[in-house]
Amino acid sequence: MKDSPYLPRLARIEEIRVETVGRRPIKTFRVSLKDGGTFTFAPGQCVMVSVMGVGEAIFAVSSPPKGDGYIEFSVMKLGRVTSALHRAEVGETLGIRGPYGRPFPVEEWRGRDLLIIGGGIGAAPLRSLIGYVLSHREEYGSLTVLYGARSSRDLCYREEMRAWAERNDVSLHLTIDRPEEGWDGLVGMVPDVLREMKPSPENTVAVTCGPPIMIKFVMEALADMGFPPEDIYTTLERRMKCGIGKCGRCNIGPLYVCKDGPVFSYAEILKVSRNAGGGGVL
């Protein structure tokens, strides 16, 4: 008998790390499957996580694919499910469905320089991507990362960022919106900092994820600087329930973000923008 696509697998919380604190705190969860199986996914894909009795919410996998029994995802506390996750403790059981969606086309990008631009919790899928690239380092050209948040306290993955900063094959730029005592990184909104950086579009793929407004301005900035729309990628967010192209809500025109995305090129976004039936794609 065929199984319901809505039936999650059970997972155990192995580790919880506090990324940021404040009004909208972020925690990263490391989980393992209780059935002993492994997670097969690619950077950019998502998982539908459930807290039984509260509900489901979708998150980008934030760890790189390792083929082992673990995955990580990072959760910003916003509503019912995300708050329940923030109350959860190591050892508790969650439900996991997926992975879902179209990942970053990392194989197509072989041999290219990569420019990765993130904001806030948008760093989650990018962390998976960066981890992947670092473990296939020889397949790619230069790797530049620009990551920003409101304040230094709102930056995620600070341990890893520190490690990346020390590598000579990663060029890391951190920025915060307003100056702070003791901050030695950049100051300014991500799209503005990007314009000042003036990255070359030459043989480069740009990937961005963050709040919708940031994505919009970053993509426009990249296009202004001569990046062709086919070489600009982002991952989009829509409210999701099923995650598998059935419930209808995550559409942008004929595309369902849950199954045709969440990764899209700017070229695809421009194409679907006409008549997308909404207040714009972003």
Binding site: A57, L78, G79, T82, P211, P212, E237, R238, R239, R249, I252, G277, G278, G279, G280, V281
Partner: peptide, 17 residues
């Protein structure tokens, strides 16, 4: 509410959409 995201962003905010 159908498309309202937890962040407050709504891709189809108006009835016309």
């Amino acid at each position: 509410e159908y498309t309202l995201e937890a962040s407050g962003h709504n891709p189809r905010p108006k009835r016309v959409h």
